[in-house]
Amino acid sequence: MNGMEGLVSIIIVAVVVIFVFSMFMSFVPLGLWISALAAGVKVSIFNLIGMRLRRVVPSRIILPLIKANKAGMDVNANQLEAHYLAGGNVDKVTDALIAAQRASIDLHFEKAAAIDLAGRDVLEAVKMSVNPKVIETPNVSAVAKDGIELLVKARVTVRANLERLVGGAGETTILARVGEGIVTTVGSAAAHKEVLENPDKISQTVLAKGLDAGSAFEILSIDIADVDVGRNIGAQLQTQQAEADKKIAQAKAEERRAMAVAKEQEMRAEVVAAEAEVPKAMAHALREGKLGVMDYYDMRNVMADTDMRQSISNSGKPKQMIQNEKDNKPKDSI
């Protein structure tokens, strides 16, 4: 029985030792410390434990430090750890410093860290400084003085400017400035054929404007990739202007017609009003003795005879024509 209890005690002690050792190894990166010593990087085991306590992943600091040390760069663990705690990408900054050193580009750790913290890809910027990048503009619509539209596409070769990478304008601004320069250059041409004959004038004029001022890039060249003839904007504008003038003239003519109709109706109203005064005048003349009864009957007979002749003359006319004549004839109010 005692033998069994001793065996159980030994097993428990062994489990506890293994657990404590595994916890120690997981908290203390002993393997990483040995790798640093083998690479010639001086870092104490207590410094690695302090990284754990500061919630810094030691491998994110030590492995880039080993690369920098092997590349012969003067970078220490405190700088890398501070950049890591600030939210930067330590590995990418280290790679950018090594690439800049190999390309003989003057780039310090503080500058690279600032570029990385600004949200720029510092490694891509170093690569672009060595190998310039070509960005292509979309079709830029520009109209020459003769009214012909040209669709111009340009290729812009840019190189990253590390000194202006923090706070400098990006590719979108470069493309916008190039497009503006193309529109200005084509718009100043007297005819679109001049641009088609010498497209290099566009690149020369645009390049001379210094469009890379205040940007994170340096424009090396602007090459015109394609020039297509588009619409006849001048003819379209003239057509639209003529259509607008036509509508204005029609509106003015309609206004004059409406005024004429109103004037005609006003004159007819005056005629009707004047005819309404005729019976009153005749009645007054009869009372005053200025018009005799026989004169009145003679006038009525003449009017009746006139109506009869009018009826005979209208016997062969269409009804609509007769109705129109009646509508236009002043009414007899007597």
Rank of each mutant, 00 (worst) to 15 (best):
I148T: 04
G87D: 03
L32T: 13
A249I: 02
D95N: 12
G316L: 08
T239V: 12
A38M: 08
I18H: 04
L291M: 04
L37C: 02
I10D: 00
E277S: 03
G187M: 15
A144E: 00
A176G: 12
D212K: 09
L30R: 13
K153R: 13
R155N: 15
K326C: 07
S35I: 08
M4A: 14
D223P: 06
S141D: 05
V41Q: 11
V43W: 08
D212H: 09
A99I: 07
S188M: 03
G72S: 11
D106I: 02
E288K: 13
H108I: 00
K70M: 00
I115L: 12
Q238E: 14
R52T: 13
A260L: 09
A144C: 04
R164W: 01
T185E: 05
I182C: 12
H108V: 00
R256H: 08
M308G: 09
R309L: 03
N198W: 15
N89R: 14
A244D: 02
D327M: 03
T173M: 09
G230E: 02
D212P: 00
E218P: 03
A86F: 14
V93T: 15
A96T: 04
F19G: 14
E288F: 04
D200S: 15
R177T: 07
V206M: 08
G210M: 15
L37F: 11
S221E: 14
A276H: 10
K133N: 03
M267C: 04
G88E: 10
L7V: 05
A68C: 05
V93F: 10
A189E: 00
A142W: 12
A112I: 06
R54C: 07
A274K: 03
A191C: 10
K331W: 01
K193R: 11
H284N: 10
V126F: 10
V271H: 08
A176V: 07
P330M: 15
S104W: 06
V166D: 05
D305Q: 12
V261R: 14
V93G: 08
F46E: 07
N232G: 12
P199R: 15
A276M: 03
G292Q: 00
A285S: 08
D200G: 11
M1D: 05
F24W: 10
E325V: 06
V156Q: 04
I233P: 09
F217E: 00
H192T: 02
D121H: 12
R257F: 04
N161A: 01
G170I: 00
A100K: 06
S215A: 11
F21G: 04
L150Y: 13
N47W: 09
K145E: 10
M128K: 02
A283Y: 04
S44T: 12
A251Q: 00
D327N: 07
I174E: 01
V93W: 09
G31Y: 07
E149C: 05
D74R: 11
V57R: 14
A77C: 03
V206W: 07
E180A: 15
K133G: 02
G292E: 00
V302P: 00
A274R: 01
S59R: 13
A169Q: 06
M25Y: 12
L207F: 15
L117D: 06
I202M: 08
V122R: 08
W33C: 01
R102E: 03
L97C: 02
I202P: 14
V195C: 14
N314D: 07
A77N: 01
V293Q: 05
S129W: 06
L286I: 02
M25S: 11
K326M: 01
K317V: 10
